[in-house]
């Protein structure tokens, strides 16, 4: 089983690595690169929402901070691109530390409010400061090399995925985080310091988002508050993660691919009604919450488990031992 999994992972990585060789079309590569980016944003959002149980409504702020750090360092200080990326990640992580310090001690509602307000505040700050170019945004030197960005984005997102997979699914850290999600008081009783763990998870989710923002800035070569700090970034990452399935890494990945593919088609056909996209995002999220609370992936994997339980239940019912009311005892 393990070997087969490894084989599949190897095949998909090799396939993605060879993709630019067989499909060198820049438009296609651009779309795939953006899919990588959204996968990265969705899985990092899920670290807080799905694993830790805290909703971060300002994830886009970290992305935007990263983009602006790269742009400012490159244009105002003349740093080379490669050295700006770690700084972008660190600044985003520092912003998470500052934002999380007062709010992660409290209940989830406070955290949701504070991150939402943080996103708006960062947006306003980018608009009024001089160093960010205000509403005019910033232009970066064009570097027209689609394959470079394809591989860079892929490497970063794959590394993030692997790191999160190890930390959340294999290492004790994941167990601690999940313990906090399930029962914070219980986790405390086990000797876990919830605030520290939540803080680590929050910073862990912010740093990759910042680096992704930095790559995005150099890739698109123009950033302004309406593009890299827009609410739609958080909204979209959220919808992807929720639709795919919270609390897993595969779920947000699937959600990101599906939602982004849908968006690409939607944009091409309904370009005049771009705000309709907001309605669709909101509709997807609301319907998912009501009808598929575990998301797509959670429902699919739950379905196979559910079928097993169903089969067992049917086998039990044949001798008619439990006439009724057995289902209610579970809750």
């Amino acid at each position: 089983m393990r070997w087969r999994n490894l084989l599949w992972i190897g095949i998909s990585i090799a396939g993605l690595l060879l993709l630019p060789k067989f499909f060198p079309d820049p438009f296609f590569l651009r779309i795939v690169t953006e899919v990588f980016m959204w996968v990265g944003l969705a899985i990092t959002w899920d670290v807080m929402a799905g694993y830790t149980g805290y909703l971060n409504f300002g994830h886009g702020a970290f992305f935007g901070i990263g983009a602006y750090v790269t742009a400012i360092l490159m244009m105002r200080s003349g740093w080379p691109f490669a050295t700006t990326l770690p700084v972008a990640g660190l600044v985003a992580g520092a912003a998470a530390l500052i934002a999380g310090l007062p709010t992660l001690r409290l209940k989830g509602a406070y955290f949701a409010i504070a991150t939402w307000a943080l996103a708006l505040a960062v947006q306003q700050m980018a608009l009024v400061l001089d160093i960010t170019g205000g509403p005019d945004g910033m232009r970066l030197p064009p570097f027209l090399h689609p394959q470079f960005f394809f591989y860079l984005m892929f490497a970063l997102v794959a590394a993030t995925f692997a790191l999160l997979w190890f930390l959340l699914e294999k290492a004790p850290f994941g167990l601690k985080v999940k313990a906090i999600r399930e029962d914070e008081l219980g986790a405390m009783a086990l000797g876990i310091n919830p605030t520290t763990i939540k803080m680590q998870a929050f910073i862990l989710s912010a740093i990759p988002a910042g680096v992704l923002g930095g790559i995005y800035a150099y890739w698109i070569t123009f950033i302004d508050p309406a593009s890299v700090l827009a609410d739609i970034i958080t909204d979209q990452a959220m919808v992807m993660a929720v639709f795919g399935g919270l609390g897993t890494l595969i779920g947000p990945l699937i959600g990101a691919v599906l939602i982004f593919a849908f968006k690409t088609y939607f944009w091409a056909y309904l370009a005049d009604y771009q705000v309709l996209y907001l309605i669709i995002l909101g509709g997807v999220i609301a319907l998912t919450v009501v009808f598929l609370p575990n998301g797509l992936w959670g429902t699919i994997t739950g379905y196979t488990g559910g079928r097993r339980i169903l089969r067992k239940a049917l086998r039990v019912r044949q001798p008619a031992e439990r006439p009724q009311g057995s289902g209610e005892k579970e809750t």
Partner: peptide
Amino acid sequence: KKGNPLLMALVFTFGLALMIKGLGLT
């Protein structure tokens, strides 16, 4: 019963806000 209802309700009102905003803009 499924998932984390409090979290989901928060997400739900957020989705609702998105939808109303989109409707408003349209």
